[in-house]
Write a protein that binds this DNA or RNA. Sequence first.
DNA 1: TGACTTAAGGACTGATCGGTACATAATTAC
DNA 2: GTAATTATGTACCGATCAGTCCTTAAGTCA
Lengths: 195, 195
Amino acid sequence: MNQGRPLEFDPHLALQKAMEVFWRRGYEAASLQNLLSAMAISKSSFYQTFGSKHELFQRCLQLFRERQVRLMTAALEQAPSGKEFLRTMLRSAASEVVADEPPKGCLIMNTATEFSGRDAIVADLVGKGASQFTEVFRCAIERAQSVGEIDSGKDAEVLARYVVTTISGLKTMAKAGMQATAIEDVAELALSALS
Amino acid sequence: MNQGRPLEFDPHLALQKAMEVFWRRGYEAASLQNLLSAMAISKSSFYQTFGSKHELFQRCLQLFRERQVRLMTAALEQAPSGKEFLRTMLRSAASEVVADEPPKGCLIMNTATEFSGRDAIVADLVGKGASQFTEVFRCAIERAQSVGEIDSGKDAEVLARYVVTTISGLKTMAKAGMQATAIEDVAELALSALS
DNA sequence: TGACTTAAGGACTGATCGGTACATAATTAC
DNA sequence: GTAATTATGTACCGATCAGTCCTTAAGTCA
């Protein structure tokens, strides 16, 4: 068996770089030139390895979702309590405002906003992402319920959807120019609906 | 004084049509062709009247904001109570899901998501929109506070920002595929943080 | 060495992007 | 009528879009 000329780049690293471009610019505004520059590969390598801009985008959405779920799951495990984890997550939009400029938000929710119903494949990936995020928050809520931080009488699934909704809203508000302190106030108020 | 050849179209109607295109597709994905078709005018008329795609977009953002503030203010005036108005607004994302497909969301917040920091002029218009929406909700909350529907001890400004945030989040979730019933559950839960 | 396989370089594609130039049409003022 | 003014139609612009094709380079295997 022949192996041919070896790849001169790391496909996974290139994928990460592409994800960042989509994350920052969205799908439409991310030109192939933008992507190639960030990925530091040639056009031929790009099409050979990733097929098309749309296929690359799908892979970026999946990568983002996996990465995010992994990070959140790890954070939940290490958190002092379920509620503290939720507080940290709700405050994340505020951190984003003070950290890098401008805030990038969540790639999944950005994508939901950019092309809601215009692309069935993307809509499916977005829906999958949203439900997996909800799942992590449901775990956190159940953990908080088990120690009495949150009323066990409340439906954990509804609470989880509420958390996803609020975080998504806060990230949008961060992009709309809301100050970090205001975001923290709203996050704290949102938390009060959980207990 | 000479008046020259009269316009063969209604500039305000054309602007409304353009706004709908931007609302549905976003800025980048709205091509000049899309806009011209919807506005039912020629390219020459377009550039003569509106200057450029970007200027048109700015006018659409302003039109949307004015329209939205007008509609919300009227709805608040006619609402049985401040809190009932807030409930209706929070449920609007659910109505959007069952009504037209796919949901369009809020043009201002869609724009915040699409190009947060990449355009200073647009960022300014987005911020102006967000604060005017907040203002309307603050009025509703103060009205609710004055009749005891909402604890007067709470900061109306923070509550108003919370409402804007939650509605924005719900509209995003609607685009991400959340069911109408789930949206209503979350909206009701969100309301509980106000009392 | 040379056959084979795969990757990268670079020229090229048709389509579309937003925008312009200019001729023509429709109106008012005189 | 004619001049002046403004709107529309149409051809055109360079730039860029995503994507293809074909050559060349860099490896393995015999």
